[in-house]
């Protein structure tokens, strides 16, 4: 995505990761590790979620601790519609994205009135609300979740039940999300958002309606997060409140920070490293968090630019 005429470690890394994503359905069988295909689908879906969170967190400096709610909204819309045997993607997906947009507009309008710790906590509170809505939805499985019988039907255009097709649909959506975010942050809109991150008072003084810009940013991120949820439900063929528990929001923040806040490709690297690390560590010991927890702390304390920083990306100061 970020390829310039000259190859830097950063652009080479980006290219390598994307190439790996693009070719995994062929690499995995060749090395006899077929399950890597599923691992990569999961990585790419989390990457979409992380890319969307990065838009508000990395570029906008808004520390949302409730991004998992959008994942949940997307997944539950797909799940609940399938429960009523409405499988058409042309109904499921637009409706899910619409719900994501409406909820993020409402939630954002309230949350963005607050700043700092209060913003962190109120986004968390809203995510918990949606979580408890899922927990108490007895009709849709409450805690135990709901099995989805069929993936979304694309009316004969594409068959998502075909593993390879589904893989490339997810890959295409990842590229699309990266493209959207890249266009946004390089446009005037992105400049304003980044300006607000550095100094909101000044942006206001110049005459920008900063609240509206932040809200627009929040809604776009919410809709992209909902998209990740749609894909998640289709991939797992299962939804449960667990996917919008607050620790999920924490994991997403970690992916963004690990990859490098406010860098376009950072969240993707973050998702790759996070999911591989959790896969690797959980194979060593059931209590893998005892290693992962301190690792997370060390990343926060010492690797401030994340992976992007290690690869020589621009040093960005934290929000």
């Amino acid at each position: 995505m970020n390829l310039r005429a000259h190859a830097t470690p950063r652009s080479l890394f980006t290219f390598a990761v994307l190439a790996l994503c693009a070719l995994m359905p062929f690499i995995a069988p060749a090395i006899g590790q077929d399950y890597y295909v599923d691992v990569f689908i999961r990585i790419m879906i989390w990457a979409i979620a992380a890319v969307s969170l990065n838009l508000i967190l990395g570029y906008g400096g808004m520390v949302s601790f409730g991004h998992a709610m959008f994942l949940g909204l997307g997944a539950y819309t797909v799940g609940i519609l399938s429960y009523y045997e409405i499988y058409s993607a042309f109904i499921q997906w637009p409706l899910a994205l619409l719900i994501g947009a409406v909820v993020s507009l409402g939630v954002g309008a309230i949350c963005l009135r607050t700043k700092g710790v209060y913003f962190i906590m109120i986004t968390l509170a809203f995510a918990q609300m949606i979580y408890f809505l899922g927990v108490s939805a007895d009709e849709y499985g409450s805690d135990d979740g709901l099995i989805i019988d069929e993936r979304s039907q694309l009316g004969g255009v594409l068959d998502l039940d075909d593993g390879l097709t589904f893989y490339y649909v997810v890959f295409a959506f990842l590229l699309l999300s990266l493209f959207i975010v890249k266009r946004l942050v390089n446009a005037r809109f992105g400049m304003v958002i980044k300006g607000i991150r550095s100094n909101e008072d000044r942006m206001q003084a110049i005459g920008f309606p900063t609240y509206r810009y932040k809200l627009a940013c929040f809604v776009i991120a919410g809709v992209l997060g909902t998209l990740a949820g749609i894909l998640f439900a289709n991939f797992e063929k299962f939804i449960s409140p667990d996917m919008m528990y607050w620790t999920r929001s924490g994991e997403m923040i970690f992916m963004v920070v690990l990859g490098g806040m406010g860098s376009l490709f950072g969240p993707v690297s973050g998702a790759v490293v996070y999911l591989f690390l959790s896969e690797f560590l959980s194979n060593i010991t059931e209590q893998w968090h005892i290693i992962f927890g301190p690792f997370l702390i060390l990343v926060v304390i010492f690797a401030r630019g994340g992976i992007d920083g290690l690869l020589g990306g621009k040093r960005r100061h934290h929000g």
Partner: peptide, 20 residues
């Protein structure tokens, strides 16, 4: 550090203590 760093690092502490 920023609140974001604090949230993440103490989130790491939770994971550590729960496993411990």
């Amino acid at each position: 550090r920023s609140h974001l760093d604090q949230v993440l690092a103490t989130f790491g502490l939770i994971l550590f203590f729960n496993s411990l």
